[in-house]
Design a protein around this nucleic acid. Structure first.
Lengths: 271, 271
DNA sequence: GCACTTGTGTTCGTTTTTTGCACGCGGGAG
DNA sequence: CTCCCGCGTGCAAAAAACGAACACAAGTGC
């Protein structure tokens, strides 16, 4: 879902830049994972050779990995074409399960969504992107479907700015400067200095509203999710269509709901 | 989220039963993936040695895999403890993106959810389990959180029975007989012959209602999701709390909504 | 119909990487 | 202090990767 895959996020991408020749780096694993990632909306189903071409592996290597993944149940094949099997979700599931936060947060997010009649989402920051880790959708307002694992550029999203604002100064600055900041609408703020000011403001206020900077007609407001000790673990937001709600109304009506939910989540979290 | 991990689903589990000695099987990949899966709710954060113990790998091997995954950004570490990084979701994301179905289905599922004020989910079958692939939650009614990738035993769920019913006879029978069928509530039907009758009925009717067989107080009704050519790709359901709705009401009010959505999804699907 | 190109998937020996084991190190608890 | 547990490292043995063949099919031009 969603093609965006925005920023150049990951510093080191897998594939096979003929690995760090470290003896501590298992190339087979990196290559196997790159085979999994070779599948996409554009190529949901591939022959052995197509996989080889996409990953840069030899056909022989691609074959070994595909057969291995098939044996393990992560891909399936009709003999000629290969496609990913649902078991792949087990891997991400391991991640989601390993975080109590989402489990704890979901009921409160459902409550938020029910109260404001808009989608409520949670995300974490990774590199230049935010990654969606939980979501309670209502009727679609965005042009793209945002599902778990989806990425959006941090600098242009309400959750991204909240997360950036709660990074240590040096890190936040560095990300602002190094991450690509393509304007996504006419309103997108891309100037690093201006963004820095915004982050300082967000940090002081404890919330962030973004008005049609990510997508025309889309407004969203986000708050940090903290654990009991006050450390920011993620961000949570609510978005609404510009035709349905003004920024002031969002602050008046949505912010209190978000803040209350965030507090309840913090209290409900262990540790 | 959700511990269930029910049935013994996967025929061949990974780990390291010292692999099929085939030259076509890449042990390193299987082992690397088993390292990812070693993380769970119970062990969200582990030292190198703990990972080694959990996976049955030597510490040296575990170390190499963890360092590799760290380099690739799939795990992160504070130097001592390792945990999964959100990038892991990219893997499952590759799967979800590779299926148009979910993208197409989501808006209709949101509509269903809005119309009946209950959660609407979609799943596929894999072995003895159904795997959740899309979900529009409303306020929580189940005791467990069902998220993407979550598994439930097929025989005891409405979606599972729909999916089993649309398998070829031989396959459906075989799964009924070989899959574990532990009773989950007092009402759970576990008798294979009785289940077979139910499946035939589901196949004939084109929908399935399950009343508190999975969990006390939980009723759900499911229909198949087909492509334009009529092939069953997944199942979609709506569930409700027993105190809020009777089975007859579910059939009267929810079924038409589900059926209409399923038809719209079929029409909206390519090929 | 025929040789021919092109793109498959598969096999095999050789080179290269990965592995497991044994050993050494260091820091916290008893 | 010393024991124990967790971590890092060197090396022979095992494995995986590579590349180059081979087999096969479908389409191509003649």
């Amino acid at each position: 879902m969603q093609k965006t895959n925005t920023s150049a996020s990951s510093e080191r991408d897998e594939a096979d830049p003929h690995g760090p020749d470290d003896r501590e780096f298992v190339n087979s694993l990196a290559r196997g994972l790159s085979v999994i990632r070779a599948f996409s909306r554009e190529a949901p189903e591939m022959t052995l050779s197509e996989v080889a071409a996409r990953t840069g592996l030899t056909r022989a290597a691609a074959r070994r990995f595909l057969l291995t993944l098939d044996r393990l149940g992560y891909v399936c094949t009709d003999g000629r074409r290969f496609r990913l099997a649902p078991k792949i979700l087990d891997l991400g599931f391991a991640y989601l399960s390993s975080m109590d936060l989402w489990d704890v947060a979901m009921p409160y997010m459902e409550q938020v969504s029910a109260e404001v009649h808009e989608s409520c989402s949670a995300s974490v920051i990774e590199g230049c992107d935010i990654v969606y880790v939980a979501r309670v959708p209502t009727t679609r307002i965005m042009s793209v479907a945002l599902n778990l694992g989806a990425r959006l550029p941090a600098f242009a999203t309400s959750m991204g700015r909240v997360l950036l604002a709660h990074l240590p100064d040096a890190k936040a600055r560095e990300r602002l400067l190094t991450c690509p900041r393509r304007a996504l609408t006419a309103r997108t703020v891309t100037d690093a200095d201006r963004l820095w000011e915004i982050l300082l403001d967000v940090r002081a206020k404890g919330w962030c509203l973004v008005d049609q900077e990510l997508e025309e007609g889309l407004r969203s407001i986000a708050v940090p999710l903290r654990n009991q000790r006050g450390r920011v673990l993620a961000a949570m937001n609510v978005s609404g269509h510009a035709s349905r709600i003004t920024p002031d109304e969002m602050i008046a009506r949505y912010l209190p709901v978000l803040r209350r939910a965030a507090e309840q989540i913090a209290r409900a979290l262990p540790g």
